[in-house]
Amino acid sequence: MVAETMTDARGEQPSGKPLALVVDHLTKRFGERTAFEDVSFSVAQGEVFGFLGPNGAGKTTTVRTLGTLIAPTSGSASVAGIPLTSDNGPEIRQRIAIMPENPGLYRRLTVTENLQLFAGLYEQRHAAARIGEALEAVNLTARAGDLCGSLSKGLLQRVGLARALLNDPAVMFLDEPTSGLDPVAAHEVNDLINGLRQRGVTVFLTTHRLEEAERLCDRVAILSTTLRLVGRPDELRERLFSRSLIVETLTPLVAPDDVFNSTDGVESWRPEGASSYVLSVTDPRNSAPHVTRALVAAGADVVSISESRHSLEDVYLQLIDEDPEASQR
């Protein structure tokens, strides 16, 4: 019922797919301190959902709440189709996997021994085969006998991912999986997340790396105690920023007003530097030819005309700038 009544604030729902996560007005307070408040969204099966926000925004607490590690103060949720209650904790945990920011592996045990512990906790019937598959999925078969204490941080993250694969989870929560990794190791982890998407695993990804979220996630949510936005990265850009063209000429235009004010599709313009102009347009693709013709007609030497691209980082910074509390955390 929650899914049908979803509003735009929860983001556009991918059509036709059953929901893996439904969160409805969820709030968590620790005494007087609010970790997150009135959070509502849903995630479809097989979706990679990015959860972004500044430090202290409540991302990890949200993951812990949905993972039944801590109880919400109010609101409701369903995880992997099971209502979030303390009674359902073991059943929910059987169907999900959480990889905390710190993989938390036993450093005196080997990779295989660590995985054997968790295969036992998930009561895997064919544990050895399952461990072999998980190690193969993260390309760690050759290091199976190594002590975890001897592995690099990147390799430890991969062991953590292998552990998260053991129970074939319906929903996988990855909390800052590339935190502290060098670019190569982070790229490897991203490839693994892409692999999960191809296997149809629902991934709930919290990250500080906005380019990573933009590249990996079908939709993202931006949290700053309350949920600020949910949607596809391109939707969020369009929602927050007007579409624009950036024009650069060899020399400054003599009468830019005359050129731009009479051009079809240009709503407004402003100079940016000596011979660059930013034009707000209704549709960059249709307006570009009109602008080019107007510039040529005015005798301008055009160096370039390009669409202004706002990244997810721009969206994020714009939203966080609007939140006075975020800068104080």
Binding site: G67, L69, P90, E91, R93, Q94, I96, A97, I98, P100, N102, P103, G104, L105, Y106, R107, F118, L121, Y122, E123, G160, R163
Partner: peptide
């Protein structure tokens, strides 16, 4: 040592 949370995320 950070190993408790992963244990508690299991059944």
């Amino acid at each position: 040592q950070g190993t408790l949370e992963p244990l508690l995320t299991t059944p």
